[in-house]
Nucleic acid binder design. Structure first.
Lengths: 213, 213
DNA sequence: AATGTATGAATAAACATTCATTCATTAATA
DNA sequence: TATTAATGAATGAATGTTTATTCATACATT
């Protein structure tokens, strides 16, 4: 007993690991989850399929995630957080110009859609799925960022007096993502999203936000 | 064999029915399907739940539909067809004004969202689900309608030269639906969609379509 | 009595999740 | 250095649940 305990503590302190963790595995699982959901839809995606696409045994997923819902949740929430982080950085580095912030934000969305099509489509699907909602604190953080943006715009005259938070949120976070996805999916599979779309979307949004209704 | 055939034809000709069909059933099933999907999401919706909500036996659904997918498909396609019918009527009755068509179209979408919230939310969910795509002929019909709208707008000067079909489609069929749903869902459950939104959305869309990029 | 409507228990397939087992790696020992 | 013991990583067959679908039966109407 004592000896056993000793050996155990010893091995912990020494950092003993019976087998090197294949660090790639987590990445493979994340990619496979997104790819499978994009290819087949959430309803038809099974743990077995994800595991197969990730070259991992079925049971192994449960070592890293408590279940299917948790796995998808985490991937989605990560993405939502990182988009908000991004917006925060853009606001802090352009404290007087909504145009600059929106332009950069849209540019990032388009780059993301082009460079990480799987992740981008995955995010788009979950954005419109009622079973995956972000939690309250995340929503509140987002509202605060939009408030910041609004006050910048009202000082500079880029945002009209009667524009409200939800209108800004909708056009920045939903309109843009939907438009990009729509254009990619519908143009006969040819990826036509490009820098012209940055200008197009930015102008549309700024006009909408400027206008007093 | 002959006799059997005779009896069958006879019963058809005479309109013999062993039991009066409960005509309400089909309506109940349709409503229950939409409600269940809106409440729980497509993934978590089962035939058993739909049947229970419709006060119908589980097996009875298979008398009217070949299966779950066919049931949902049909409800969705019906809606897509009726929206296109509606647009066609609006185009025919306003052959020179895009503004009139778009205003009426948006008014209808908002009325629909307010008066048939369940059906409206159901449509919204399927609009963004990859597993439910409308077939080619329906897509083509829609494109033709949009072409009509475009040529009206280019004669009247309401639609810019460089605007393409997909841009018109996106703003009329996706932007509007998404905005209405977003406003309904996010305003803390209070239904704030009203006639001001008709003006707001119409102005936004017409500005976007007018602008030459 | 004849016949189509409607039921819901039974069936079989699909699925998420678990867990006994195997495997790879390292530390300790000789 | 070679061997062994210990440990946690990883597996995948087994489990139990959920689900869509079927079908033998009961029911209502003419």
């Amino acid at each position: 007993m004592n000896e056993c305990l000793f050996i155990h503590l010893h091995s912990i302190l020494k950092g003993v690991m019976a087998r090197k963790i294949d660090n790639d595995k987590l990445v493979r699982i994340k990619k496979a989850t997104m790819k499978t959901i994009v290819d087949r839809g959430i309803e038809k995606t099974t743990i077995a399929m994800i595991a197969k696409n990730a070259n991992v045994s079925g049971g192994y997923l449960y070592r890293l995630y408590s279940g299917k819902q948790a796995l998808i949740d985490e991937l989605y929430f990560d993405k939502v957080v990182s988009i908000n982080n991004e917006l925060e950085i853009l606001i802090n580095s352009n404290p007087t110009s909504v145009t600059a912030i929106v332009t950069a934000f849209i540019k990032n969305r388009i780059n993301y859609a082009v460079n990480k099509p799987e992740a981008s489509k995955f995010y788009y699907q979950l954005l419109h799925n009622n079973n995956f909602k972000v939690d309250k604190s995340l929503k509140e953080r987002n509202l605060l960022l939009i408030e910041n943006l609004k006050s910048i715009g009202q000082k500079s005259g880029e945002i009209g007096k009667n524009i409200n938070i939800l209108q800004i949120h909708f056009h920045l976070f939903i309109y843009v993502v939907d438009y990009i996805n729509f254009k990619k999916v519908n143009n006969f599979g040819i990826e036509t999203i490009n820098n012209n779309d940055v200008i197009y979307l930015t102008e549309n949004i700024l006009n909408i936000l400027k206008k007093d209704n």
